[in-house]
Simulated scan of single mutants.
Amino acid sequence: MDAATPLGMALALVALVVSIFMEGGSLAQLWNPSALILVLGGTVGFTLTTFRTKDFSMLPKAVARAFSAAREDRAAIAEEIVGIADTARKQGLLELQNRLAQFGDPLLRRGLSLVIDGMDPQAVREVLDQEVAIQRRRLESMAAVLEQAGGYAPTVGIIGTVMGLVHVLSNLGDTERLGPAIAAAFMATFYGIFTANFFWLPLGTKLRGQAERFEEHARMIILGVTAIHTGDTPSRLREKLETYLRDESGRAQRSTWAPAPAAPGEMDMATDHPQRD
């Protein structure tokens, strides 16, 4: 699980509870079952109306995916790709077939299997590009469902408040219950705004970020597979992969990634196996 997601939610809840107590209120004031049912049910219903059943059915998976941590270690994958390139140059591509099941990343296994089967480098890239595009669209579709729900929630809350105020105005004779009734009516707006900004929109944004990081990760793998196919030297491949191992400040992530100088004789091997465009 990505610790940032539950930690952020917990911090938001703590801030809300503390502010209520500082104002002399109580948590009971936030409980209004009818308003909560309206907001949650209306949000889900409007979202279901917007999307296909197939897209909407991904909602539970989208929520689970937003809470999960990314399963990628670019430095480790890059090191693995360089090792594969070294094996391919020394022992040939067919040697990789015996080790294919050992490679952890499914896209890497897929790309290498295409290479081993003798597919043209351009065709390999096109197949992998298409698979990456499909996976990214799937993640973005999940994010769209969450974001759309976040857009509907405040609107449903306003609808609930208007309904509550209509009920209040139809019973103005009972002055003793007027104040509590108005407060209860505004709880629907609170639920709508709170669920949108506490749950739906943050998780949707989280998924969009995962989609972007997935594509960067996939592009690094595609570059590596293509370089292996065209006979790049391990040292040259390291230089290419270095671009994908930089953090936001532009510094290379070298926790497990330590580019090494070309091995003795590697330049001669490069002459025997020239890089193809």
Rank of each mutant, 00 (worst) to 15 (best):
M1C: 02
D2A: 06
T5S: 14
T5N: 13
L7T: 15
M9V: 05
A15Y: 02
V17Y: 06
V17C: 10
V18Y: 05
F21W: 15
M22P: 04
G25K: 14
Q29G: 15
N32K: 10
N32I: 01
N32A: 14
L36G: 09
I37G: 08
V39M: 06
L40A: 15
T49W: 08
T50E: 07
F51I: 09
F56K: 07
M58E: 08
L59E: 07
P60N: 11
K61V: 05
A62Q: 02
A62F: 04
V63I: 15
A64H: 00
D73T: 06
A75V: 00
I77G: 01
A78N: 04
V82C: 00
G83M: 02
I84F: 02
A88N: 04
R89L: 14
L94N: 07
N98E: 02
R99H: 07
R99W: 00
L100Q: 07
Q102F: 00
Q102V: 00
G104I: 01
G104A: 14
D105F: 05
D105R: 08
P106V: 05
L107G: 09
R110P: 04
G111C: 10
L112S: 11
V115T: 15
I116P: 03
M119E: 12
L128D: 08
D129C: 07
D129K: 14
E131G: 08
V132E: 01
V132F: 00
A133K: 11
R136G: 00
R136M: 03
R136C: 04
E147R: 15
E147C: 08
Y152L: 03
A153S: 14
A153W: 07
P154L: 06
V156P: 01
I158F: 06
G160A: 10
G160L: 09
V162C: 06
G164S: 03
G164E: 01
G173W: 03
G173C: 04
D174V: 06
D174T: 07
T175H: 04
T175F: 11
E176Y: 10
E176C: 02
E176P: 01
R177H: 12
G179F: 03
A183W: 01
A183C: 02
A184G: 14
A185C: 04
T189I: 05
Y191H: 09
G192W: 05
I193F: 08
F194P: 07
F199T: 12
W200S: 03
P202E: 09
Q210T: 03
E215A: 09
H217Y: 10
H217V: 02
A218P: 03
R219N: 12
R219V: 02
M220K: 10
I221N: 11
I222S: 06
T226D: 15
I228F: 04
H229V: 11
T230V: 15
G231V: 13
D232E: 13
T233H: 04
T233A: 14
R236N: 09
T243A: 13
Y244N: 04
R246K: 15
D247Q: 13
R251Q: 15
A252C: 14
R254T: 14
A260M: 13
A260D: 08
G265Q: 12
E266W: 09
M267C: 00
M267Y: 11
M267A: 13
A270G: 15
A270N: 13
T271P: 01
H273K: 13
H273R: 13
Q275S: 06
R276I: 13
